[in-house]
Design a protein around this nucleic acid. Structure first.
Lengths: 333, 333
DNA sequence: ATCGATATCGATAACGATTTCGACGCGCTA
DNA sequence: TAGCGCGTCGAAATCGTTATCGATATCGAT
């Protein structure tokens, strides 16, 4: 019926015998249009199956009722977060748009800035940044950071008690009799990674156990990034009896490397992770780890962001508790 | 520096002392601009940190190098799929945009059509529809359906061997000695749900075991939707000794209902699911289920879609195998 | 009958980008 | 010297929508 395939506001206007402007008003429920006209327009809209283009709309106007969540890639942590945000957005009138770039890895830090710019004037009314590589962005729109970058953040943030969790994990290994404990850190630019290392060190110090520099490695949070340091750690002349990994992905990779080296878990090596993503229960053996309430963090991020959009003020920082979940990857020495 | 906060192509043009058109040509590497000019423009682009707006660009032109994946909500199945697509998109030059609406539930079938329209002329070059509620859409852009709707689909589709998987699940329960087996179906408009029921029936028939109509219920795939039918099934005068659930979410809910009714699993009731999402291993007890290669399905969807966009032809239907994974939710009678 | 207040409506300018096409300068040839 | 072709560049149209604001119609009051 229409040459383009797409039916535009112009088509509706022509069919209904009114102007484009009037149709726009009807759609957006602005006042200043007669009830009869409005009804006629709405009928045509229904007949033609017109839907206003999000792209064109967002180019012109300010509100889109869409909130964006920016992740580097969809790995277990960010998808867990996505589940939480998805559930929380239900019934709020907002829609969720998740954006992930390819090749946004390691070297090109600050990609969120570029993406926020690319998303343009406002495809989105606000954004959630997951494990951002920046501490600040031009506040064109409200932004909430989950698991924020190092340093005093200008952004409202949500994280979990990494310090306490790391202490709990370390004390757990200590209690099992381990003394030679390897530490496989996370993305070094993340506040959470620093706190986890700090928690590890302080728990070790409190127990009077020295930490050997050779046992401190950095794994990064990306899938694949932990393989090399894990291998280095496990082929040391004097191998650690336990490894505390900065996140579950790293821990799972460590177990794979260990197995490829002929080590049995937990008999020859204990491994503890951090996050408690669902995959950890699938690992072989099931991973003992520190749980973060990831989905809840996502939900809180949404609530905070919407409050920010609406101008309702709220505490700009929220820290949720962590807890130990014991499975089968650790054993007393 | 710039009133708007955002730096536009116009700002770049003005600063570089050229026209907007020239800047556009430089950005898009069109020929017809002198090397010296090009260099100067690129320098200004760098200085100002200009990024072209995806919104404005997509309004005017055809390609965006973004592919969209439309899901009703981010539950375990669709997020698993997301992981697969995310990994597959890496290195292809495409970016991934996941869109989920709120309140897109049950009653408003055909929401994909509206969304595809809303996404406009082309914010995206192609789309992946996950468990769509429609069998067909206006092919404005290439589209691939994962776990498609009932009926002969005009769309290229990807699914897994639901029939074979359901037969395997049923035979497994039969082998354990169960005869009175309840079936908790999935979204009835999905081809996979129909095939799973069909597989169940045919395996039962092959074993000469009658299926009682009172033991056939429909759960739906949504979180929360299975509670009522599960309760009905478990409070029957003559309770089933085993339940085959149409997907893992349903199975997990069934186990929760069972526990709330004081039933122990697997002592009093065996439960088997379908999908093998990571959450199933976290369930209590860990769920025995039929595995679909969900992430692989996502990866194949991306490959197929990109081939479609590029015009490279490919088989329009792909079916991946399923397999049984035994955990602890089933027991011999 | 005329005026002015109030509703209703539409022409038009943005929004930020891409693309077409004509203008311009320059060197070369007839 | 006039004409032609070529390489560069920019003015302007366009995409679909919303916001502004002037134009028209309606109607009660004087």
């Amino acid at each position: 019926m229409f040459p383009n395939g797409r039916v535009t506001i112009g088509d509706v206007a022509r069919t209904a015998g009114v102007s484009v402007a009037t149709v726009s008003k009807v759609i957006n429920q602005r006042h200043g249009v007669a009830a009869a006209t409005s009804e006629r327009v709405l009928e045509v809209v229904g007949q033609l199956g017109y839907e206003s283009s999000l792209v064109a709309r967002s180019l012109r106007s300010l509100r889109t009722n869409v909130i964006g969540i920016l992740v580097a890639e969809f790995e277990p942590y960010s998808t867990e977060l996505l589940k939480g945000t998805s559930a929380a957005v239900e019934g709020t009138g907002y829609e969720l748009l998740a954006y992930s770039g390819s090749g946004l890895t390691g070297e090109n830090a600050g990609w969120e800035r570029r993406y926020l710019a690319r998303l343009g004037g406002t495809l989105i009314d606000g954004a959630i940044l997951v494990t951002p590589t920046v501490v600040d962005v031009d506040h064109d729109i409200p932004i909430v950071a989950v698991d924020p970058h190092l340093g005093p953040s200008a952004l409202p943030t949500i994280d979990s008690d990494s310090l306490g969790g790391a202490i709990a994990a370390t004390e757990y290994l200590l209690r099992l009799g381990h003394r030679r404990i390897g530490f496989l850190g996370g993305r070094p630019d993340l506040d959470s990674a620093r706190l986890r290392e700090q928690g590890f060190r302080s728990a070790m110090a409190a127990a009077g156990v020295p930490v050997h520099p050779e046992l401190m490695r950095v794994g990064g949070y990306r899938p694949g990034a932990a393989e090399l340091p894990a291998r280095e750690l496990l082929t040391l002349a004097e191998r650690p009896t336990a490894i505390f990994a900065g996140n579950d992905l790293t821990a799972i990779q460590t177990m794979e490397v260990a197995r490829s080296l002929g080590l049995r878990i937990p008999e020859d090596l204990s491994v503890i992770g951090f996050d408690n993503v669902p995959e950890s229960a699938l690992a072989n053996p099931p991973l003992t780890t520190i749980q973060q309430p990831i989905q809840q963090m996502g939900a809180e991020a949404v609530r905070m962001l919407i409050d920010l959009i609406n101008g309702t003020e709220r505490a700009p920082h929220l820290r949720l508790p962590t807890s130990l979940v014991e499975r089968s990857s650790c054993r007393a020495l």
